[in-house]
């Protein structure tokens, strides 16, 4: 399954970078969202995929017996998701503000008002 996911993630990166290279700022935002999803999936897949063994210790037990999914990348991704969201919110509001000031959503034209 991890092999398949490698191709899917490669596609996600391709899509996100292509979208971010567009001149329209809305497409840039879409690209950003896909990029954060791709990055999170990347960490998740590379750390190893485990089916049906969440990193929870059973009620009453002190230790986990048997294999369990790696909790560390999960903790990393959890914070990454929330951070990515707030960065996205910031970027989106910034972009809208820029649009209102500059009056264009063409990134190539935004550079001329860089004063």
């Amino acid at each position: 399954m991890a092999t398949l996911m490698a191709y899917v993630i490669g596609l996600l990166f391709t899509a996100s970078i292509y979208m971010m290279l567009r001149r329209s700022i809305v497409k840039l935002v879409i690209g950003l969202i896909i990029l954060s999803n791709a990055a999170n999936l990347l960490i998740f897949v590379v750390a190893g995929l485990t089916r049906g063994a969440p990193p929870l210790i059973a009620e009453g037990a002190q230790q986990i017996t048997g294999t369990v999914a790696d909790p560390l990348p999960q903790a990393l991704i959890l914070t990454a998701i929330v951070i990515a969201f707030s960065v996205l919110a910031f970027a989106v509001v910034l972009i809208r503000r820029a649009y209102e000031v500059v009056g264009t959503d063409d990134l190539d034209q935004m550079k001329d008002t860089d004063t």
Partner: peptide
């Protein structure tokens, strides 16, 4: 041009994941 760059990046990522696993 952008599509070529993006596809290149995607291929590198895929190879990277396959190698890293």
């Amino acid at each position: 041009r952008d599509l070529a760059v993006a596809v290149f990046a995607g291929i590198v990522m895929t190879l990277l994941i396959l190698a890293a696993m």
